[in-house]
Amino acid sequence: MRVLHTADFHAGRLLRGFDRTPEIHEALTEISELAKSERADAVLVSGDLFDTGNPSADAEAAVFDFFLRLRDAGIPAVAIAGNHDSAARLDSVAGLLGWIGIQMVAQPSANPVEMVRQVQTRGGELLTVGALPYLSERRLVKAADLLGGDTGAWRQKYREGMGFFLRRLGEGFKAGGVNMVMAHTTIDGAVPSGTEKNYQFDLTNHYTLSGLQLPAGAQYVALGHIHKPQQVSEAPFAAYPGSVIQLDFGEGGEKKQVNLIEVEAGRPARLTAIPLASGRELKTVRVDMDNVEARLEREKGFTGLLKVVVRAPSGTALPGLKDRVLRVTENCLAVELDAQQEDLALPDLKREGLSLIELYERYWKERRGELPQDLRAAFKEADDLAREGVEA
């Protein structure tokens, strides 16, 4: 059996206001062609189909076009929701996706066995997938309520709660077939790319699982959430394929891929990394203030997207710096200052001591530009209500 594993599309991603969706669409088209050329019996998508819970029409078109291409090729798929996805939104279209052979597991079930999906391949083999969508601490506590658990204890025992679901998923495995688990989570020892280091783990609850908690009967664990491709466990065999393009400058230089898994009942899985060619390369270039034009002239042949970090000595005047950069290179999305003294550092380059709303403003600026006032007010109101709840 040949299973193609991918994850972290992030359709709808904006980088400094620049829409990456066309590149993501191109990558998804490339993956659908690989699914055909590699004679995949099934495709697994381990979450973060979209970059936001309310994706644009173009983002939805890119993802649904991918699923339709799989349908046209007669290749079934199983997908789960990630932390960037709206679980409720994906759950609302799960029935429609089922009509074209895409089994979507967007939300946890009070009975985890209901999250086990089965795929009958064209060769007559049975693939069983225990599909665990992203569970934040809040969702896990809600699931614990459904199960009659002690929610106060579950808040302190994220691993035990996740372990419960994983054990129950393992109970749905079928003898004589291929058994896999799919999850959108972080496994101990996983190495994040610059993306996760800079923002993802700062602004969300960061909980991890031990590889020892993964069901021993799983022949492969198809993971999503970490954007850097890597294997994180030998027994059971678990791996992240990573994001499908370099999503931001923290991922600059990373080679993107999908994982082709070859496996048969009762035998260990084998992984082959298949590189992806889609998506513009991202690069960070560091230049000295007195050498901006000369250094950037060397990047004239670069067709990707640039972030330029200018090293400025003490007392340097900065007006017109961005214009200087853009006169040399039109494919620059960001210009930042790397001041040598703390009192010269730009406020948006600092992070220690920032409030939650200030962190949110910086997070939004990195992806979309200036934070709209209505969103700032809504975030502040939610933060105030949360603080009141904690104080109460």
Results as ranks from 00 to 15, higher is better:
residue 36 K to E: 14
residue 37 S to L: 07
residue 37 S to G: 00
residue 37 S to N: 04
residue 38 E to L: 15
residue 38 E to A: 14
residue 39 R to W: 02
residue 39 R to I: 02
residue 39 R to E: 14
residue 40 A to E: 09
residue 40 A to Y: 07
residue 41 D to T: 00
residue 41 D to R: 04
residue 41 D to W: 01
residue 41 D to V: 00
residue 42 A to F: 10
residue 42 A to N: 09
residue 42 A to R: 07
residue 43 V to S: 04
residue 43 V to Q: 04
residue 44 L to Y: 07
residue 44 L to E: 06
residue 44 L to H: 06
residue 45 V to I: 15
residue 46 S to C: 13
residue 47 G to I: 03
residue 47 G to S: 07
residue 48 D to S: 11
residue 48 D to L: 11
residue 48 D to F: 08
residue 48 D to Y: 08
residue 48 D to I: 08
residue 49 L to A: 05
residue 50 F to Y: 15
residue 50 F to A: 03
residue 51 D to Q: 13
residue 51 D to G: 08
residue 52 T to Q: 07
residue 52 T to I: 08
residue 52 T to C: 05
residue 53 G to Q: 12
residue 54 N to W: 03
residue 54 N to V: 11
residue 54 N to F: 08
residue 55 P to H: 05
residue 56 S to N: 09
residue 56 S to P: 11
residue 57 A to P: 01
residue 57 A to H: 06
residue 58 D to V: 03
residue 58 D to F: 05
residue 60 E to C: 10
residue 60 E to P: 00
residue 61 A to W: 05
residue 62 A to W: 05
residue 62 A to H: 07
residue 62 A to S: 12
residue 62 A to Y: 05
residue 63 V to E: 03
residue 63 V to M: 03
residue 64 F to W: 13
residue 64 F to A: 05
residue 64 F to I: 12
residue 65 D to K: 14
residue 65 D to C: 06
residue 65 D to W: 06
residue 65 D to E: 15
residue 67 F to L: 13
residue 67 F to Q: 07
residue 67 F to P: 00
residue 68 L to R: 14
residue 68 L to S: 13
residue 69 R to K: 15
residue 69 R to Y: 01
residue 69 R to A: 14
residue 70 L to S: 11
residue 70 L to P: 00
residue 71 R to M: 08
residue 71 R to T: 03
residue 72 D to Y: 10
residue 72 D to C: 03
residue 72 D to I: 01
residue 72 D to G: 01
residue 73 A to F: 10
residue 73 A to Q: 12
residue 74 G to S: 11
residue 75 I to M: 09
residue 75 I to W: 11
residue 76 P to I: 02
residue 77 A to Q: 05
residue 78 V to T: 08
residue 79 A to L: 14
residue 79 A to N: 03
residue 79 A to V: 15
residue 79 A to H: 02
residue 80 I to Q: 04
residue 80 I to M: 09
residue 80 I to R: 08
residue 82 G to Y: 02
residue 83 N to R: 07
residue 83 N to H: 11
residue 83 N to P: 02
residue 84 H to Y: 10
residue 85 D to Q: 10
residue 86 S to G: 07
residue 86 S to L: 10
residue 86 S to Q: 11
residue 87 A to K: 13
residue 87 A to L: 06
residue 87 A to D: 11
residue 88 A to R: 15
residue 89 R to W: 03
residue 90 L to W: 10
residue 90 L to E: 09
residue 90 L to F: 07
residue 91 D to C: 02
residue 91 D to Y: 11
residue 92 S to D: 01
